[in-house]
Amino acid sequence: MDRIGIVLVGAGFIADAHSGAIDADPRATLIGIVDADPARAAAFARKQGGIRYAPDLDTALRWPGVDAVILCTPNDTHAPLGLAVATAGKHLLVEKPLATTLADAHRLADAFEAADRVLVAAHTHRFYDYGRAVKQTISSGAIGRPVLVRLAILGGWIWPDWSAWVGDPERSGGHALHNGVHLLDLATWWLGGEPTGVYARGRKQTAAELRIYDYLEMVVSYADGATAVCEMSRAHRPGSLAQRELLVAGTAGIVEQGWDGESSLVFGEAGTTTVPAAGGNGFAAQLGAWLDAIGGAAPAMPVADAVRAVALGVAVEESIATGKPVAVTA
């Protein structure tokens, strides 16, 4: 069987996770890398053993053997670059969010449906061990109908400097679109319900001059009465102690994982840090599911869900701005 030829677009730090997943899957091969910075593209290509590189997507889409594209560029470029991929008749795995506006998200969804190509947004937490384990537990019926999700992802790294595009709401769409969508999608996937409204609060904790909210509290209401409380934070200190906590309550039981539920702890001279347990490769699982969908399987991350995640992220930003609940329609 021919391998699916993939072009990576954007040689930032997340590209390494995607290229590692491609290396690990015998069904795929990395054809080349695109980055607007030619030197960065060349360096990435050399690191990958001398693959092709180019400073623009149009050139790469004409390379022989290219079947699909993984897009790891700033969020505001997802729509124009993604539409170019659809026009070229290639499949696309695009970093989250699918787009920074709901209109662009629908435009992408429509374009790929018309081109009969597979579009998947990289909501990677669906493919992490914990994300899948919670979903499987709920699907097994062990806790009955889920009525509450509490999910917090706190701490970890912070934006490198003031020039980082993720700190520019025009480019990233704001933190709700950039990172918040991970939790909004995951909680909604776990609950299996239809979101009807969002109430959110944001905080610029690290610096008053931030243009995005480094702490987000996002509460989603669902048609069946369920609630999701999602916290996304780059504001918690110390940043060296990343924490993830989850609680799912159902009509017949609860699922919990505390902040230390997946990690060992190092009590060192420099403080306390976590050592997360080794586990599955979420990026590899995500790539595998995308390749499965290209082969005809049902997508594990449907386009409609990616559009819905954008709708939720946009609603979060609106709710923070207005201080009021916002109705959600994808």
Binding site: V147, L148, R150, Y199, R201, R203, E217, V219, S221, G225, T227, V229, L247, A249, P325
Partner: peptide
């Protein structure tokens, strides 16, 4: 105060003085 959920399991989102926020399930 903003409250959501059900009478059995309610989520309270509270705004305190000095911009402090809290959430109670």
């Amino acid at each position: 105060v903003h409250a959501t959920g059900t009478p059995d399991l309610v989520t309270l989102l509270l705004d305190h003085e000095h911009g402090v926020t809290s959430t109670v399930v």
